[in-house]
Design a protein around this nucleic acid. Sequence first.
RNA 1: GCCGGAGUGGCGAAAUGGCAGACGCGACGGACUCAAAAUCCGUUAUUGGCAACAAUGUGUGGGUUCAAGUCCCAUCUCCGGUACCA
Length: 800
Amino acid sequence: MDYNFTAIEQKWQKYWEDNKSFHAENDYSKPKFYALVEFPYPSGQGLHIGHPRPYTAMDIVARKRRLEGYNVLFPMGWDAFGLPTENYAIKNKIHPAIVTEKNVARFKGQLKALGLSFDWDREINTTDPDYFKWTQWIFLQMFKKGLAYKKEMNVNWCTSCKVVLANEEVVQGKCERCGGEVVHKVKSQWMLKITEYAQRLLDDLSEVNYLEKIKATQTNWIGRSTGAEVDFGTTTGDKLTVYTTRPDTLFGATYMVIAPEHPNIEKWADLLTNMDEIRAYQELAAKKSDFDRTEMNKDKTGVELKGVKAINPVNGKEIPIFISDYVLMTYGTGAIMAVPAHDTRDYEFAKVFNLPIIEVVKGGDVTKEAFTDCATGIMTNSGFLDGLSVEDAKIKIKEWLEETGKGKSKVNYKLRDWVFSRQRYWGEPIPVVYCEKCGWVALPESELPLKLPDVESYMPTDNGESPLATLESFINTTCPCCGGPAKRETDTMPQWAGSSWYYLRYCDPHNKDAIASKEALDYWMPVDWYNGGMEHTTLHLLYSRFWHKFLYDEGVVGTKEPYMKRTSHGMILGEDGQKMSKSRGNVINPDDVIKTYGADTLRLYEMFIGDFEKTAPWSPSSIKGCKRFLDRVWGLQDIITEGDGYRKPLEASFHKTIKKVSEDIESLKFNTAIASLMALINEIYAQGSITKGEFKTFITLLNPFAPHITEEMYNTVFGEVLSKQQWVAYDENLCVDESVEIVVQINGKVRAKLTVPAGIDKDKQIELAMADPSVKSQIEGKTIVKQIAVPGKLVNIVVK
RNA sequence: GCCGGAGUGGCGAAAUGGCAGACGCGACGGACUCAAAAUCCGUUAUUGGCAACAAUGUGUGGGUUCAAGUCCCAUCUCCGGUACCA
């Protein structure tokens, strides 16, 4: 009963392509549905076996929506700027655009072989100048609004390759490519002020339907905290401002710590008597990579600033100031008040440097450890706060700070601005020039897109500049503002740029005058359902929400949020339960699977493999079960009989299965949807035949999962094209069998099973249970305490 | 440390508080075959029993309930993310 899947799949893929079967119409009167999957990075390795999982899932949703009568937009494109292509180009001295073209062709062929119902007329590519023109345009709008700015930043610098590395290229403190030592180096970088949108990015999570874990991850990443800024005086007459979430513990502040990079150190240089020691510590801290700094976690180090003291504003006491690398310049004010009694890090530091520890909240034992879990405690040793609860003390001290002008309430975020520069070739050029007279100036829009020039080598320069920096003809230009000589920016944008707005371009991908037409955006946006990897939650997903909100403020888009619903899929692991990798030798190639079993089987198996949201190991033997199922489906053609409706013994099963499949697709429970179809086909084979009406329903339900075989079979039997038909309906009333089996429990243990008519009421059910001979004998001579009945399910008789 | 998530047969996994193990894989037995593959039929949580059946069973220990894989408290292990964030 094997079927020729290769011929059938090629036939229907060609039919869909020739007939533009999945073309999203620009008919704005129809109800729309916008289904989106993350566009892939077209790597040289070709499609990974993990790619079809989310793609098939959303393809199923898209196909079902079309059958339900929606105008569906389900597009695909290429996120093609990026490092692997550039590294390949460097190594093989070939233009990255050529590598990209080759990789895209391969990926496209592979995706088409999966029978995914993308609208290929809307294909986009982030490296296409007609596309990145608008990426650059958005950057310019941000630049004009002051959201893009230059800043001196620490970057990762490989001392061996002499290049700037992205964080992803730094593995365990070493360069991913050469294993060389990676240190920090200060470079001027373009930054985007995502922090300006922190509160809105947080607030508007309540308006979207994302998985809870996605919301939680974004919330934690944004990291809002409330507290106060407190001004400490110093013996120099300057003030030193700290941020704290625990202003209530101000009386317990026995010393201060500032970041090694804190600007006040330079200011006080003349007063400090141990400057040599301080300098040495600063150098040590600067040399440390992020890796070393976290490794050094255990032992607190630091140096006291001798010659300057701070004054605790609440009691006028003079306290010492230290520098230590556990205080970060990038968070809060780069300075902290240390309350060793109620903060673990401050406690450790105080122990090392033998500093006083004053308990200000009762309840712990501060001679042994810091008492941090003290939200319900009572204040002590705290002057006017004594006797108050921590909660009340927070309010009172904030009032005091505001009244005395020594501080104020303050909200802080962990979220930091987005480092937007890359000293690389294969990215969008940043469309600004530097003029001695006018500073940084935006290119006029008429000069967009600013294309990448051809260069000799794609290798970054010796001092870490982009390869573009070697091209005098590219760099030297005139200032759009004053007409004088100016130099172009040679940094390019990060890979995240092109993917931050790509979903908008799909709405109107060939528009020459705008990102997309207003009508197209108003009709298609927001994306109704966006599925993608959890790993993009704090980067791509957050970045694109940020850009969308900016475009909303600019009046370009009409919705506050880009995506209404966001779900996530689990990874597919190797047969050994490990991540697939060449070195482990557990990689499965989708081309091989399609050749052996066909695309329908691959799709079905990836959906059947387990809970869509969880990781799942690949199983070469389990996929056979899915092929076997499709062979059995193919065999239905041999047992078709005339007839329209559902025959009695199968009627309830059909209605139940329609319901189950319809609902399960909506909640991503593809595995149980398929299981119910398998159960149904077992019932059909037990009957020995299937009517045309039953066949139609079965084939339609299976169509989103296995589109090729179902198109072929439908076409053979009915002479029509299934993807143009309608989804099937069920009748809730007909989902119940005429009679059902119930269990009779005695004291919670199953003692008998009865067949009763459906729709039976409680009393009747109890009556029937009590009449059962085996039940009768088992409760004989005992006292009935209670009788519980769940109609259609069970009876429980409690006896003593 | 903190934030997520998960612990159920030989394996992948199912179960609105109501028969634990649907569906699939594998294994075992049978049919077809000269034989094998494929296919079809049957069995398959564990223990005891020829059997009807009984007892046990969802990481561990408690609890709530007529009834707990599911709810509550505690605890262990694993996976993912994140981390001197004041």
